[in-house]
Computed example of a mutant assay.
Amino acid sequence: MNGDVANSLDSNTIGSLVTQFGTPLMVLDCDVVRQQYRALQDALPNVELHYALKPLPHPAVVRTLLAEGAYFDLATNGEVDLVQSVGVPSERTIQTHPIKRDSDIQHALRYGCTVFVVDNVNELEKFIPYRDQVELLLRVSFPNADVLADLSKKFGCKPEQALELITHAFDLGIRIKGLSFHVGSQTRSGDKYAIAISRCNEIMQQVTDAGLPVLSTLDIGGGFPVQYTADVLPISIFCEPIRQALNVLPETVRVIAEPGRYLVAPSVTNIASVMGQAERNGQTWYYLDDGIYGSFSGLMFDEAKYETKSVKQSNEVYSSVLAGPTCDSIDVISDNIMLPKLNNGDLIVSTMMGAYCSCTATDFNFFKKADVIVMGEETVFDSNSISA
């Protein structure tokens, strides 16, 4: 289930939203979030899904997923504050940033979050003052060159270091309750997870053989791919090797995951309008009121692919350029897109923009960020009125 939100926005709905709220807009459809959550839960039926807030830290997403029974993966004090404000019970959260300040640990503990992630001795020893309050997951690195973002380059201990770190934690009186890993974003194959799960299973057995407390939790991270392009596997097929690998684990092991992009990427549609136009080198340049420094920031930071179309339809289309509103020359969304001849004020719609778009947008050049409009809750409303 790809859940392309554009299917739920006909031209009348788009026009109504623009009349009411103006442009640019980011339209968040909570029904799509629900669909994505249920699809992943069906693909990983015995795995607790902890939504990683980073790609879209929006209260409506948190509320929607909480109602679905989700758990939450937090990495910063702001994310702690957001889930607390929405009423997420602290026992449904973990704090997974491998590198934390002492104040970050204290902030999470005041909320009631007691499960943290470490990946080195320095980080482990930060928990000495809190050893009676916390349980830790040790993050293990499994480098993966075949991904959009290889997070194992920045975090995680080598598998052969795990037993030594767990032994050191035991000597300090700190409980390591399990292992975690992250194979990277937009992973192409579930086989990468299966390899990591198998290696973690071996580490768990090493811990038991060493006479240390049994590890009871395995966090398989995120990275589940969404269909920016047609070559991405359907989620059930993608997860088949993961399910097979998990079946080999002892039945006593609790398995959790940290999906982010997969749950929210298809849930947001961008609506922008043409501010002006010019003929340059045989192409029409259309300047929109949103761009690279705004909602399309993922084109720079995330290498994601968005489907972009004109609301105005015609059989006659021409090679065109879509540019953002700022005075910076890199602010170009697409330098070769086939579009009909557009007028100032015509609308451009882009889908698959729920992950790493709003959260990385800026107000550079004092062009305001797109307002986020929520659909699929009880009413349609402007999220700027929500206190988070």
Rank of each mutant, 00 (worst) to 15 (best):
Y193A: 08
L215M: 14
P143Y: 11
H182E: 13
L138G: 08
S216V: 10
A108M: 07
G190P: 10
L215Y: 06
I203S: 03
V140T: 08
I174V: 12
S189T: 14
P213W: 03
H182Q: 08
C200E: 01
K177G: 08
P159W: 03
Q227T: 10
R131V: 01
Y111L: 01
A210C: 13
S216P: 01
P129D: 10
Q186L: 04
S216A: 11
K177D: 06
G178I: 01
Y130D: 01
E123C: 04
F142T: 02
E125H: 13
H107W: 09
V226N: 05
G156L: 13
S141D: 09
V207P: 05
S141G: 13
L151N: 02
L212K: 07
R188Y: 05
Y228V: 12
V117Y: 02
L136I: 06
V115E: 09
C113S: 05
Y111C: 02
S141R: 12
M204W: 09
A196T: 04
V118S: 01
P225M: 11
D209A: 15
R110L: 11
N122R: 14
F142S: 02
S198M: 12
D150H: 10
I176P: 00
Q133A: 05
E123M: 15
I174R: 01
Y111P: 03
I128G: 08
H107V: 10
R131D: 04
A169K: 01
A210G: 12
G178Y: 05
Q227L: 10
N144R: 08
A230T: 13
L215I: 10
S216T: 15
E164Y: 06
C113I: 02
A210R: 02
E202A: 15
Q161N: 14
I174Y: 02
P159G: 08
L172I: 12
I197E: 00
G190C: 09
A145P: 06
V147Y: 06
Q133T: 03
I203C: 02
V115Y: 06
